[in-house]
Amino acid sequence: MSFPCKRFALSLLALAAPLAMAQAPIAPDAGSVQTPFLGGFLKETRVIYPLRIGDWQAQGEHLYEQRELGASVRYVHGLQKDRWMDLYFYPAGILTNEQLGEAMESTLEGLRLSAGYSAADIDPIAPVVFTQGSGAQKQKITAYSTSMRLVREGQTYHSAMVMLVSDLYFIKGRFSVEEKSLSRRGTQKQLEKFMAAVVRESTLRSTGDCWMPPPIVEKAALIKDAPGQLAATDKDGVLSAVAYADRIEALDAKSSEAIVMQFLSMPMSGRLVPGCGPAEDMNPEVPKDMREIRLEFGAPSGEKGNQSVPLRTRATGVS
């Protein structure tokens, strides 16, 4: 495919985002050097979340010492002060919906085995679909939801959990109320409504080795329709940049044509990881009524490469 690049440089950059969502990243070669997940594949994250969601107001934020546990935010109801929801953000990596379901089952098993509850009746998990983004970048995200009846220190609670993966992170919500205050189904529906807003309004950006644009190689001449070409662009009728899975060849490595082709080719070659971007994009503007959490993962020492982390089973309050 060929594009007259000078006129369409900006439009090509706009195309790259929706294309990225349509194709999953390729896995590293089996013989390649493995990159540690935290401090390697994922080095920094910015989470921008709303301070208010409906009647719920963010009252507390906590960053966990164990870096794989990420951060949590507690929301308190504006009128019913005895109610709160806990929202968690913690690293996940690249997971399928099946793996997300397995992760949630593991978290729920931790609740069943928790010494904090004398009884835990947990419904089977069920998928629920949320909408993220808008316009050309609008997409559907599958989450899993469940309701529970928990007994702690003689007090019975109705509780719910919703869990999803977005932009390399688990996003988990917990809501628990006394049994007499709200029905089990009502508890689950309130949490699902809350989490739909979280997904719609929050933004997660990360950087690290997950950002892997192909190198640009300067060439004196380019070959049209060479084997392995993914895309090509011309300037004034002359071929100026060609994309391959492992590189971009260009007459001028610093030209706008080469840079646009570098970004355009990333989803085609499986190099574009949703939620991961260049380090220079890690200082986004924080809108009014939003707050930013900054998570940084230092270089690991002796940690083996992987793309998964231990799952949270720790409870907060009656969550």
Rank of each mutant, 00 (worst) to 15 (best):
T142M: 15
A17V: 03
D167I: 00
A315I: 02
V309S: 14
Y117H: 07
E218S: 08
R291F: 08
G154D: 15
G39A: 08
Q307P: 00
A24E: 13
R185E: 15
E179R: 09
Y144M: 05
D234C: 09
K235P: 00
D121Y: 06
A126L: 07
V273C: 05
A226E: 15
A245W: 00
L204K: 01
A9Y: 01
L295A: 13
V33H: 11
E192I: 05
Q262F: 02
F297H: 09
Q139K: 14
P284E: 07
G154E: 14
A221W: 04
D209E: 11
A220M: 09
Q99Y: 05
L69H: 09
F130I: 00
P300L: 03
P310W: 04
T45I: 05
T207E: 11
T96K: 05
V129Y: 14
A226P: 04
G208C: 09
K254Y: 06
L204H: 03
M212N: 12
S269G: 15
I94G: 11
V242C: 15
G305D: 04
L10G: 10
P300I: 00
R152S: 15
T316F: 08
D236N: 14
S106I: 02
G186K: 06
Q137T: 13
E153L: 12
G40A: 13
F37E: 02
I141C: 07
V198H: 10
M212Q: 11
N97F: 05
P214K: 06
K140G: 02
E178S: 14
L182K: 04
A126E: 12
F175G: 00
L79C: 13
S240H: 08
N97Q: 15
L69I: 00
I259N: 15
P278L: 04
F194M: 05
D123A: 15
K288Y: 03
A71Y: 11
Y157T: 02
A17Q: 07
G298R: 08
A119M: 10
V260T: 14
Q99I: 01
A126F: 02
I125K: 03
G93Y: 02
E280K: 13
G275C: 07
E201Q: 15
D234W: 03
K304I: 07
F175S: 02
A30I: 03
L38N: 01
S308Q: 12
Q57G: 03
R83A: 06
K304G: 07
I94E: 15
Y169L: 02
